[in-house]
Write a protein that binds this DNA or RNA. Structure first.
Lengths: 217, 217
DNA sequence: AGATACTTGTTAGTAGCAAGCAAGTGGCGA
DNA sequence: TCGCCACTTGCTTGCTACTAACAAGTATCT
């Protein structure tokens, strides 16, 4: 769709520009093909050719299939974590967690291609040496760290029960998010994506509230 | 380890016994190799040979790599769902959910190889045509159905808030379980498996309790 | 003798590498 | 400032090792 204007537009560019362009194109093609065919059947040959280049460029540029997927994860995860922090803004505590849930389902609706691709790669990473497991672990860790900070702030503000362990709560919260997404990926139609989000927020509010505010409600 | 007594023991068996034995051996080899090397790098050649046979038997018997993994999922999931219902027993409502969580972490401790293999396959299934996605979907669906039944029973008994939607609650509960396992698979050491289980049970108790029993506690 | 478990020969297709081609880049002398 | 030329870098193509899958063959049971 966007690959027809490549030959003309490529002329007269600096080498750096050409490389950046081909990188971007191949990452986009990889996202499309991973969603269309899955990780295994998305071949480097087809990725290179769909991007408008030869069968060998992807290997040459990214070193290996895993290298390409590392780049895809970096590209999508960066954009995505940015969206998150932007959307959650200055909120903290339970409000931040709820905003995070909303942000997640909004992102899933707005760029389903990217979300699907990212999570397909995430869930494929658990093999003993997928080659990009470390990158996935980094993203998970960063996300959990954000959640830990929100929970801590909520406790400090007296909103969240001080008995809550922030780290474990973060693992629990993230488990929700990932498992929720997972089920949606396996059976896109059998899962009430939106409804579960509402229930999740309700559950967070009732189970995290500090004793004082729970009595007050 | 168990593959050294194959040649002698194979003689003098009925055809059906031979086939059943080789099936079992290959499924076991597949589990080992999936955990050792991951789905992609676990080759049919090595699976067949580790089981004590030729490079071609796995394809011949199961038709394809996906066919073999379908058989692995069936074998492990059957055993596993059985363990579950046995362990949960006649419990229902919140107690059943908590027993399910305990059962999960016990199973993960007792047969980590099987749990890892099963979930590696589960998480690899989300590709658009992994060839065994339907089987995974079946298992997920069956598990959710159990949870729905427990929640319904809990509502009927007046223990769980009638405002809870059983189906959505089941999706939420399963999301927890899967996401929790996922994080454990990606970072076996960075996750407090046991601690999260306790927090999860606590959360279920506080957020599902019917208003009446919540006041009573 | 026939059926069934299993093996082996072969094919199409894949990732990755290395050698080669062509287009852009920078320095030097005028 | 201009133009040439060595050099770098983006990209392609030929090749190898390996894989899943299949078909035709062998050995074992019934």
């Amino acid at each position: 769709m966007t690959a027809d204007t490549d030959a003309p537009s490529r002329a007269g560019m600096s080498q750096a520009e050409r490389a950046a362009l081909s990188d971007r194109r191949m990452i986009d093609a990889a996202i499309e093909l991973v969603v269309e065919r899955g990780v295994e059947k998305a071949t480097l040959k087809e990725i290179g050719e769909r991007a408008g280049y030869s069968r060998g460029l992807a290997t040459y540029r990214f070193g290996s299939k895993a290298g390409l997927f590392r780049a895809v994860i970096r590209a999508v995860a960066t954009r995505w974590l940015g969206e998150f922090t932007r959307h959650v803004g200055a909120r903290s505590g339970i409000a931040a967690l709820c905003a995070c849930v909303d942000s997640w389902s909004r992102f899933a609706k707005e760029s389903p291609l990217h979300v699907r691709a990212l999570h397909i790669l995430f869930y494929q990473s658990i093999g003993p040496d997928s080659g990009y497991r470390e990158r996935v672990a980094e993203v998970l860790e960063r996300q959990r760290a954000d959640v830990v900070a929100w929970v801590r702030a909520g406790i400090a503000a007296g909103e969240i029960d001080p008995a809550v362990d922030p780290r474990r709560q973060a693992e629990l919260f993230c488990a929700f998010i990932y498992g929720w997404t997972y089920q949606w990926l396996v059976q896109p139609d059998a899962v009430d994506f939106q409804g579960v989000a509402e229930d999740l927020k309700r559950m967070l509010r009732t189970s995290l509230a500090a004793p004082a505010s729970r009595r007050a409600s």
